[in-house]
Design a protein around this nucleic acid. Structure first.
Ligand code: FES
Ligand code: FES
Lengths: 156, 156
DNA sequence: CTTATATAGGACTATTTTAGTACTATATAA
DNA sequence: TTATATAGTACTAAAATAGTCCTATATAAG
């Protein structure tokens, strides 16, 4: 079904919450209350985000987490990568040399382009976007094209 | 890691193979030989693709499968949907009414836009593209935008 | 210095999803 | 009638994910 994991979904909810008060410290226990996600799970997500330098942590009493960068400087692709690891639509994209039919594979190149297109789409959405009301914009994405149409359809 | 399942990957390999001879019938046993994928697995994939009307099946002796449409009329989004079910980045996208925090959820709208962007990217690639050598093109995708930039960045 | 608080890190279990296989029924060409 | 090939379904095994828990470490405050 091509979906992100639950943890990633939690991560966006949590980060969106934090993005509303970017300068304050947010303890895991506070976030549990405001999001409804169980404490151990919240804790796990926060650790992963901290490790990926999306959040900065402060230990000890009165500690907590805050955004490492401005809300518009962290995007969804980074969040997904922090929780799930590198984004690659097929196994061959993330784990090199594993695939037996790699030498003769003719579709790898196209998957790589699809990959880039999806990544670009995810990269275009920031925490600021998530925290803000929904509006619309257009973004250009690199894609493979058919043999027949030998020129760019849309230029950016 | 945001990836399609192995079966989906097989499906693209198989369909790309068939797309090279769109008018001939391809039996599961033939496809096993030319792709290296185990027969029961090939069989499973072909059945799913047939059920989704991406392939047409012919039973009995000298039977097999062929493309239901021209190679450029079937896209990757359809293939993924055929094997994995509806494409939705989060659970809330595909299974309505399940999420407890749906009423108060402020990020659903943005996930919906991300979803559409990814879908558009996948929709833009056809079997003809997969079968052809890799080239480049640009495609426009609808995305959410920040509060500040209240106008379209790129028009298509 | 001591205590309470909060994150860091890792290990572990349970659950869910995916992959792969097998078997029976049905259709068709020869 | 027989050989061949798909349809449909059920089942098992393997892998990924989700969720929990425990111990160590850092820090603010009394
Ligand atoms: S399927 Fe692995 S490299 Fe193409
Ligand atoms: S998280 Fe389920 S609707 Fe937003």
């Amino acid at each position: 079904m091509l979906r992100v994991s639950k943890l990633t979904d939690y991560a966006t909810v949590i980060l969106t919450h934090i993005a509303h008060q970017p300068d304050e410290l947010h303890a895991a226990s506070d976030i549990t209350q405001s999001t409804g996600v169980a404490l151990p799970t919240v804790s796990k997500v926060l650790k992963l985000l901290s490790k990926a330098n999306i959040l900065i942590s402060h230990r000890g009493a009165k500690g907590g987490y805050q955004l490492a960068k401005k809300p518009n400087e962290t995007n969804v692709a980074e969040v997904i990568t922090a929780i799930e690891g590198p984004i690659g639509m097929t196994e061959c994209m993330t784990s090199k040399g594993t695939c037996e039919q790699e030498p003769s594979c003719e579709i790898k190149g196209n998957w790589s382009l699809i990959n880039r297109a999806v990544y670009t789409a995810l990269e275009a959405v920031t925490l600021a976007d998530m925290a803000a009301p929904v509006r619309q914009q257009a973004v250009s994405v690199v894609m493979p094209m058919t043999k027949e149409t030998n020129e760019l359809k849309v230029e950016n």
